[in-house]
Amino acid sequence: MSAPVIDIRGLVTRFGSHLVHDGLDLSIPAGEVMALVGGSGSGKTTLLRQVIGLMRPQRGDIRVLGQPLFSGDLQADRVLRQRFGMLFQQGALFSALNVLENIAFPLRELRWLDRETIHDLVMIKLAMVELEPRHAWLMPAELSGGMVKRVALARALALEPELLLLDEPTAGLDPDRSAAFVSLIRRLRDQLGLSVVLVTHDIDTLSALATRVAVLGDRRILAEGTLDHVMKQDHPFIRSFFGAARHAGSAY
């Protein structure tokens, strides 16, 4: 097994008197698609925000791609953040910039690529997420929900990350589009050799995409492993969450 892309040890998170994570350990191996699932309020999104460095945990150690997120060295921290891409739930596109500028933004921030190259790279990224060149001139407000996700994915992939984090990638999409988006992510993952971590509560997305599953509950990881392994665990949440899945699965 190769080195873990994300390594979390003894994580403690507390909001006031509310304890969210208590000594949580999780290690995500490279090349896997790891799905984080859990009931509402189990701290999935909080965990994801800590992994990308938007929140500092009160206690515990998080290493991403083998390095700590807050090393104290500003340049190292910045380079580390360029090595992973994040797809936010609502896309989080810059509303004042058009699609082209949105995808070009991280590339421009490198400050050593010329205009023509950036334009070419953006066009490639657009094609990768199955959008057409003419979409490059639209503003985020003019895009449909599915297109926003695709543009946001293209932006997350702009710097050729090794690790892709997805927060509810299919939330708000109809089943058709959601299936198409899942197959797009799967294809890109194979093509680019990405490690993927996703937070989801959609069982179809989970079963179609994830190679491993980690279940959050009771302030720690309840179970972690392949989908089959996790589904065999005996815990009320796992039973109810995947119980619905068994029915849904048999319907296909």
């Binding site: 023509e116 334009h119 070419d120 490639i124 060149p133």
Partner: peptide, 15 residues
């Protein structure tokens, strides 16, 4: 080769 074929979407289109 796969990656090179991806680049084939680039037309003569320039900014």
């Amino acid at each position: 080769l796969d990656m090179l074929r991806v680049a084939a979407v680039l037309g003569p289109c320039r900014p």
